[in-house]
Design a protein around this nucleic acid. Structure first.
Ligand code: MN
Ligand code: MN
Ligand code: ZN
Ligand code: ZN
Lengths: 173, 173
DNA sequence: AGATATTTGCTAATAATTCTCAATTATCAG
DNA sequence: CTGATAATTGAGAATTATTAGCAAATATCT
């Protein structure tokens, strides 16, 4: 289930009456060789392939990435304002979450199996079927803090209400 | 910090050189009286107010809701494709997460303090400042399952790869 | 009450994503 | 291997949520 090959992809596509195209194969390849912790937007994927001389139309990029996300091969993430990011969806042992700085969009991944476990418990309690769970932690990174956040932010920006002083001692909910 | 009044809002706005307007007050009022578990998009907020004869321009709706999210008064959520939803940001005792059906967008809230606790631990380990953390659990709801998902889905939809059979026993990460 | 910077409400502009459709091509049956 | 056929691509137009620009209105502070 984990090490996706072109053949695995073809089988899965064909089983649904769909086809393996060079474009889809190249896109899978990009994500498979993307260094851990990287995430690509449609636009970024487009230019990355374009620079390698393997141009794929932006329409096809958008279509493929959406299809592969719906197939569960890619994970669709909301890490920044305005556009989605994608990464390989690697279930259990590599499942991870994201911590994002809301000022500079720097993203840090972290593992935490108990979050997945809690989600699973929640989902089963209601008879739902789990597809994915993503914890997004919005933060201000140390650099932004050092630069005097919030005073260094654009004048229309503000975020006073933080939740870090909450009393949390016990483990279970 | 929790029961927001027009006065609290005014104080907080004024402290930043901003102003309390009838529009902002009305918007806060809507969210304060929104039944638990409800979430509004900008468009929905617009028509809700419009139906009550308290029309506020869509521009102002968008601006206010974004401002109040950045102030930490509202929480900005990605629960459905294509647009954001907002709800009151109620920190510790009322902090919650969301389980969404990726087919019909039905959303269920659930509480889990240990997720917040884990996030906080993670954030502090890196010297970041926590602003918010949102766990979004993507699922297929029982109704969609009963309707024969995925076969009942539009032909371009597919999601085979689920992560529900992962071996998760231990509690801590 | 008057001065002034902020906010509102129009409308126009952006920007990400989706749609349309003719041309291309992967798959499959023969 | 070859041809039939349905899926896919690429180019550009269309859509949609959201933001920007600006004159008129107004909240706040003397
Ligand atoms: Mn990641
Ligand atoms: Mn909620
Ligand atoms: Zn940052
Ligand atoms: Zn559903």
């Amino acid at each position: 289930m984990l090490p996706y090959t072109a053949n695995t992809l073809k089988a899965e596509l064909n089983s649904r009456g769909w086809r393996l195209t060079p474009q889809r194969e190249k896109i899978l390849h990009v994500f498979q060789n993307l260094p851990r912790g990287n995430h690509l937007s449609a636009e970024e994927l487009y230019s990355l392939l374009d620079q390698r001389g393997e141009t794929i139309s932006l329409s096809t990029i958008y279509r493929s990435v959406k299809l592969m996300a719906r197939m569960g091969i890619l994970r669709e993430l909301e890490l920044a304002e305005g556009h989605k990011h994608y990464e390989l969806n690697q279930p259990y042992p590599h499942h991870h979450h994201h911590m994002v700085c809301i000022q500079c969009n720097k993203t840090t991944e972290f593992n935490n199996d108990s979050i997945l476990k809690h989600s699973l418990k929640q989902v089963e309690k209601f008879g739902f079927q789990l597809i994915d769970c993503q914890l997004t932690v919005m933060t201000i990174c140390p650099e932004a803090l050092r630069l005097g956040w919030p005073s260094a932010l654009p004048s229309n920006w503000s975020c006073s209400r933080v939740i870090s002083e909450t009393p949390l001692e016990d483990e279970e909910n």
